[in-house]
């Protein structure tokens, strides 16, 4: 007898689980269907198959420009966030210093700040110091909100590494930097990659903070938000949505598979070492 669930209970929960998954994916599937629907308005009954909306968005230069801007911002801000996160994570896991609790609290606090508050704060800062809003101001904000995510990935991984490996290198005369480069870095490379991915997607999708500090070049979410107000743009926005949603689902699955493989390799390394 199972102590946690009766047979019927398990059946019931499985059905409930399936129902919720259906609820979660149905909207995405509906978008997928309408993206191929030959009609200006996304409504039933369906009126025929077309690839028109995909062609249309591929020739929409505003949209492509926005995607490019978001790509640049996400690349810059995720790189910045990973660098800052890695530095801080090394300090938090490898150094002893006073006020560690306060430091980690500060570094993690962007996780809980309401983005509307952070957005206006940055807006006031840039007004005060006279910096015009641009791609760069969005990057600055996105780095702040991404740093905690990189820490959440990097710190546990750094804690898992057998510290004696680093001590051995250090005892053999390697500098701390050298130790980091040849021992620590290779071991946490998968974690760095997944921190980078998380920061990248966070930035690419971020609307709230960006809406306050964005310059004249719209990011992808900013473009989407404004396009949502014009019904005529809806069908091609749906087509873009499908592409982005499907791509990001694929990235998520790929990242997870990669993480599993890395973990297995890590485990075998641990046991053989």
């Amino acid at each position: 007898m199972d102590v946690a669930l009766s047979k019927n209970g398990a059946r019931l929960l499985r059905a409930f689980f399936a129902l919720i998954v259906l609820f979660l994916y149905a909207p995405i599937v509906i978008l997928l269907i309408f993206s191929f629907n030959n009609s200006e308005v996304p409504s039933f009954p369906l009126s025929g198959f077309t690839l028109h909306w995909y062609h249309e968005f591929l020739s929409n230069s505003d949209l492509k420009g926005a995607l490019e801007t978001s790509g640049i911002i996400a690349a810059l801000s995720s790189t910045g966030a990973v660098v800052l996160g890695l530095l801080a994570a090394m300090a938090l896991t490898r150094r002893r210093f006073r006020g560690k609790a306060a430091v980690s609290a500060l570094l993690l606090s962007p996780l809980v700040i309401p983005y509307v508050v952070f957005g206006i704060s940055l807006l006031l800062l840039f007004h005060t110091i006279g910096v015009p809003r641009s791609v760069l101001t969005v990057v600055i904000g996105h780095i702040v909100i991404s740093v905690p995510y990189t820490l959440l990935v990097l710190v546990p991984r750094l804690n898992q590494i057998d510290i004696s490996l680093e001590e051995a290198a250090f005892d053999l005369g390697a500098s701390r930097l050298r130790t980091f480069r040849s021992i620590t870095l290779p071991l946490i490379l998968p974690a760095i990659l997944s921190a980078f991915l998380i920061a990248f997607t966070t930035s690419f999708d971020e609307y709230a903070v960006a809406s306050f500090v964005v310059g004249t070049r719209a990011t992808f979410p900013i473009y989407l938000y404004s396009a949502l107000r014009f019904p005529s743009q809806l069908p091609q926005v749906i087509a873009v949505a499908v592409v982005v949603l499907v791509l990001s689902l694929a990235v998520v699955v790929a990242a997870e598979v990669g993480r599993r493989i890395a973990e297995r390799r890590f485990a075998s390394l641990e046991s053989s070492g």
């Binding site: 998954v21 926005v237 949505a241 990001s248 998520v252 699955v253």
Partner: peptide, 21 residues
């Protein structure tokens, strides 16, 4: 993963989906 994957996709686009629905 099946459960969490939608959370990792675009926030705005999931709102958009409901607007369409």
């Amino acid at each position: 993963l099946l459960l969490i994957a939608p959370f990792l996709t675009s926030y705005l686009l999931r709102v958009l989906a409901w607007k369409v629905i």
